[in-house]
Simulated assay, not measured.
Amino acid sequence: MRARGAENGLEDVRGAPPVADAARGNWVDRYAPVSWRPYLRLARMDRPIGTWLLLFPCWWSVTLAEVSIGNPYPDPWMLFLFAVGALVMRGAGCAYNDYIDRDYDARVARTANRPIPSGQVTPEAALAFVVALSLIGFLVLIWFNLFTILLGITSLALVAIYPFMKRFTYWPQVVLGLAFNWGALMGWAAVRGSLDWAPVLLYAGSVLWTIGYDTIYAHQDTEDDLMLGLKSTALTFGSDTPFWVGSFYVGALLLWIAAGFLAGTHLVFFFGVALVGLQMAWQVSTLDIKDGNNCLRRFLANRDVGVAIFLALVADTLISWWAGLS
């Protein structure tokens, strides 16, 4: 099977086609120095959706914590630290995942053009890249309080085991959700120095959200996964996927509402969650699991979920602050 990038004739000057699900004309392919491109692709810098999905639970949690203490807006410095951390740790996680999966990726059309299986980056260089990005992430982490530092370090166990899960369980998306949404705990901890039920519920809801959207994403690879003997929730749910994804999304919405209630949010937050519910309903009602492009578009639409929840929480901080002045 040929990768889509090669079929589209999109090759850089080294003859290496872009990976299949990168947007045509993305900034890496257009502007990055040629020698950097394999590493930027390894870190998924040409596909920023994963960074957004990792970052938003962090920003939600920071802002929810600010609502709970009546501050007028989330700390910009803290938002910046989480943004840098999400960028480099998502890159490190993707590079590590590609290192572990390099033999499988070489046999799948959608992933055959990734830097390691295509020979653009050696496995040893990929591991060195993981270490370098992880060190940057650690330098970001030490700006936070001790509790948050320790909390962040504990997430590494989940990150380490995730790439192996699809070899052993049909529910690897659960482990991905647990690892990918750790920021929903860390944001609150960074602001308050401890945890409470509100961030725990925010985290639980975000885990369900991830299981839902990654199940949609996994439907792009069901044929290849069957051929390779790999497992996923997409294979488990099959034609019942819309029901299951819808159920996970409903659970996420209810848990986010409960988190907001415990943190003292106002009507604007609940209105934002309601709008998100409509967007999720669109995803489920129009999902065609047999159409890879359809699945990819609905997966990418989850960035809108992140934006809507974050903006609703920011608006809520202003209302909380104003109410405190009244």
Rank of each mutant, 00 (worst) to 15 (best):
R2Q: 09
A3F: 01
N8E: 12
L10V: 15
E11V: 15
E11L: 12
D12A: 14
V13Y: 10
G15E: 06
V19C: 09
N26T: 00
W27A: 15
V28Q: 08
D29L: 02
P33N: 05
S35I: 12
R37H: 10
P38T: 03
L40M: 09
R41Y: 11
L42I: 13
M45A: 15
P48L: 13
P48T: 02
P48W: 12
I49F: 04
I49C: 05
T51D: 07
W52M: 10
L55A: 14
L55C: 07
L55S: 03
L55V: 14
C58W: 06
W59F: 12
E66I: 01
S68E: 07
I69V: 14
G70I: 07
P72H: 13
P74N: 11
L81M: 12
G85W: 03
G85H: 06
G91V: 10
N97L: 08
D98Q: 13
A109R: 14
A109G: 03
R114S: 01
I116W: 04
S118P: 03
T122L: 09
T122C: 08
E124T: 14
A125D: 10
A125G: 09
A125E: 14
L127M: 15
S134E: 09
L135V: 15
I142N: 12
F147H: 08
I149F: 15
I153G: 12
V159W: 02
I161P: 07
F164R: 11
R167M: 03
R167S: 06
T169D: 05
P172T: 04
P172S: 11
Q173P: 08
Q173S: 11
V175N: 05
N181C: 06
G187S: 15
W188Q: 09
D196L: 01
L202S: 02
Y203K: 10
T210F: 00
Y213C: 01
Y213P: 01
D214M: 00
T215R: 11
T215M: 12
D225E: 11
L228F: 04
S232M: 06
S232T: 14
G238E: 14
D240Q: 15
P242W: 02
W244S: 03
S247M: 05
Y249I: 10
V250N: 13
A252T: 02
G264Y: 13
T265K: 02
H266F: 09
V268G: 03
F271A: 11
F271M: 08
A274T: 05
G277C: 01
W282P: 01
Q283F: 02
V284F: 02
L287A: 00
V307M: 12
I309F: 05
F310V: 13
L311P: 02
A312H: 03
V314T: 14
V314M: 08
T317D: 08
T317S: 14
S320H: 10
